[in-house]
C-alpha cells in the first residue's frame, strides 16, 4: 500500500516537474516572440503596424501582378484565391528559409543560458504565424463580408490547415537550422534558389487542376502545394483538387517535424559551440 502511495506521489511530482518545464518553455518562446516584434517594430517608421503592413505590401505587389496578368475567377474570389496561395507560402518561407541564418542571428540570445536555438526558432515562428494568421483572417473576413457568405466552419478548417503549414515550415526550419549552420555554402544555395523554385511549384499562382498530368505528379511531391490547394478547397468544396491529399500533407508535416527534433536533439551542443 505504502509503495503504491509513494509511486503515486512520485508520478505527481514528475507531472508537476514536466508542467513546470513546459510552462517555462512556453514563457521563453512567448518572450522571444515579443522581443522580435519589438525589434521589427523599432526598425520601421510605422512601429508595430509596420510589422503587419510590410508583408501586406509584399503580397499585394505579387497579387497585383497576378491580377493584372488575368487571374481566373471561377470557384473562388480571385483575391481570396491568391491570398490563400501567397500567405501560406510566405509563412512557410519566412519560417523555414530564414532558419538558415537562425543560429547566428539569435546567437546573442544564448547569453541567457535558458534560451536554446530551438526556443529562438519557435519564438520567431510563433510571431510569423501570428502576423500571417492575422492577415489571413483579415482577408478572409473582408472577402466573405463583401460576398456575404461568411462561414465559421470554413474559418475553422482554414485555421487548422494554416497551423499545419506553420508546423511544416517549423519542421523544415528545424532541419535547415542545423544544415545552415553546418554547411554555409549549401545554405547560400538554398537561400538563392529554393524560395523562387517553391514559389512556382506550390500552386501559388496556378491551381493544381490546370497543371498537365505529366507535371502534376512532380508538383504533388511538394506538401506545401497540398496545403495551399486544401485551403482553397475548404473555401469552396466544389473547387477541384485532383491528387491532393490531406493525409499526405499532415503526415509529411509531422514527419519532418519529428525528423527535425531528432536531428536537433543530436546537434544542439554543436549549435551552441563558439565556432561553427
Amino acid at each position: 500500500m505504502k509503495t503504491k502511495k509513494l509511486q503515486g506521489n512520485q508520478f505527481f511530482q514528475l507531472l508537476s516537474k514536466a508542467y513546470g518545464k513546459a510552462y517555462l518553455q512556453a514563457r521563453i518562446v512567448a518572450a522571444i516572440s515579443q522581443r522580435e516584434l519589438r525589434l521589427r517594430a523599432s526598425k520601421g517608421l510605422l512601429g508595430v503596424a509596420g510589422v503587419f503592413i510590410e508583408p501586406i505590401l509584399g503580397i499585394a505587389t505579387f497579387m497585383a501582378l497576378r491580377l493584372l496578368a488575368g487571374a481566373r475567377t471561377d470557384y473562388i474570389n480571385p483575391l481570396l484565391s491568391l491570398s490563400l496561395g501567397f500567405i501560406p507560402f510566405f509563412l512557410f518561407s519566412d519560417v523555414a528559409i530564414k532558419s538558415l541564418d537562425g543560429v547566428q542571428k539569435n546567437s546573442k540570445l544564448y547569453f541567457y543560458r535558458r534560451i536554446k536555438p530551438l526556443d529562438a526558432l519557435f519564438g520567431d515562428a510563433f510571431l510569423t504565424t501570428q502576423v500571417y494568421g492575422i492577415l489571413m483572417l483579415f482577408l478572409y473576413v473582408s472577402v466573405s463580408a463583401w460576398e456575404w457568405n461568411f462561414s465559421i466552419e470554413v474559418l475553422g478548417i482554414l485555421s487548422i490547415l494554416f497551423i499545419i503549414v506553420a508546423i511544416f515550415g517549423l519542421g523544415v526550419g528545424l532541419n535547415t537550422l542545423i544544415f545552415g549552420h553546418r554547411l554555409p555554402l549549401l545554405a547560400l544555395f538554398v537561400r538563392l534558389t529554393v524560395r523562387r523554385l517553391l514559389l512556382f511549384t506550390s500552386c501559388v499562382f496556378f491551381p493544381i487542376r490546370l497543371i498537365p498530368d505529366q507535371f502534376r505528379i512532380w508538383i504533388l511531391w511538394n506538401p506545401l502545394a497540398h496545403g495551399i490547394e486544401l485551403m482553397r478547397h475548404a473555401v469552396n468544396p466544389a473547387y477541384p483538387i485532383p491528387g491532393v491529399s490531406m493525409s499526405y500533407f499532415l503526415f509529411s508535416s509531422l514527419g519532418l517535424l519529428f525528423i527535425g527534433f531528432l536531428i536537433y536533439g543530436n546537434n544542439e551542443q554543436l549549435l551552441l559551440a563558439d565556432d561553427p
Partner: peptide, 29 residues
C-alpha cells in the same frame, strides 16, 4: 540557477529600450 557573468550582458539589444531589455530578462528568469 546560476547567473550569467554579473556586469556583462551580450543579450541586450541597443535598439530596444532599457525597459524592454530588462523585461525580456525577467521573462526568461
Amino acid at each position: 540557477s546560476v547567473s550569467w557573468p554579473v556586469g556583462a550582458n551580450d543579450a541586450l539589444d541597443p535598439k530596444l529600450t532599457g525597459h524592454a531589455n530588462a523585461r525580456f530578462a525577467f521573462e526568461i528568469y
